[in-house]
């Protein structure tokens, strides 16, 4: 049996001094190299869950473990975000003033590793995403599908163990969606990466080997 990449133990998250309970006691375990789809109605807490798994926020109560290390105490969240996870957003969130190849280097800049050939690594990643012709383009010169592929390359920049995607195809047409999903699952298989995709597209959810459904801040059994 493989050890879990991520584990949540009775995780609760509330906002506005407890008035909004986005997560109401979530327990789950995700194995290393697993591909999981998280689905559920809008407002059910999917993004909140993914943000907590990605170390973008801390739970109100409960613990989250990355390879048995508790997030925020055993492993500091900045380190976790920069070295262990790659995050992909529905709205791409590329920097408008940076070319595609520069956007991919942003996470590497956060690592501040001396003498690293960031541009070469960014170039390799963009080639892997089939963007060899678009490296010098600015985000506003790219199609939505291309932007999301740049964002995927950026998420891979620091060789994370886990890839988290929050509705990565939410702003894409069906053809681009299929293409992006193919890229993500391809990476997951090739690199043996753990991939967690939040989606409300049933087709995508059903295609995943494991599906977790969320409703009202709880995992549906």
């Amino acid at each position: 049996m493989t050890s879990p990449a991520l584990e949540m133990r009775d995780v609760r998250k509330s906002y506005e001094q407890g008035q909004i309970e986005a997560l109401r006691g979530v327990d789950l375990s995700i194995a290393t190299g697993e591909y999981v789809a998280i689905s559920g109605p809008s407002g059910s807490g999917k993004s909140t869950l993914l943000h907590l798994l990605g170390g973008l926020d801390s739970p109100t109560t409960g613990t989250i473990l990355f390879k048995n290390a508790s997030l925020g105490s055993d492993i500091d969240l900045d380190t976790y975000r920069s070295r262990k996870v790659g995050f992909i957003f529905q709205a791409f969130h590329l920097m408008p003033t940076l070319r595609a190849i520069e956007n991919v280097q942003l996470p590497m800049l956060g690592l501040s590793r001396r003498g690293m050939d960031r541009a070469a690594r960014a170039r390799d990643l963009l080639m892997e995403m089939g963007l060899e012709d678009r490296m010098e383009s600015y985000p506003n010169q790219l199609s939505a599908g291309e932007r999301q592929r740049v964002a995927i390359a950026r998420a891979l920049a620091n060789e994370p163990d886990i890839l988290l995607a929050d509705e990565p195809t939410g702003n894409l047409d069906s053809k681009c969606s299929a293409n992006v999903m193919q890229m993500l699952t391809g990476i997951q298989k090739r690199h043996g990466m753990t991939l967690i995709v939040v989606t409300h597209d049933d087709a995508i959810a059903h295609a995943a080997p494991r599906q977790i459904r969320i409703r009202d801040g709880k995992v549906e059994q």
């Binding site: 920069s82 995050f87 920097m95 620091n158």
Partner: peptide, 16 residues
């Protein structure tokens, strides 16, 4: 604000 949040999400520390 949002861009700085993205940088944080990409692993930049407060210090950076």
């Amino acid at each position: 604000t949002r861009e700085l949040g993205i940088l944080r999400a990409l692993g930049w520390s407060r210090w950076q």
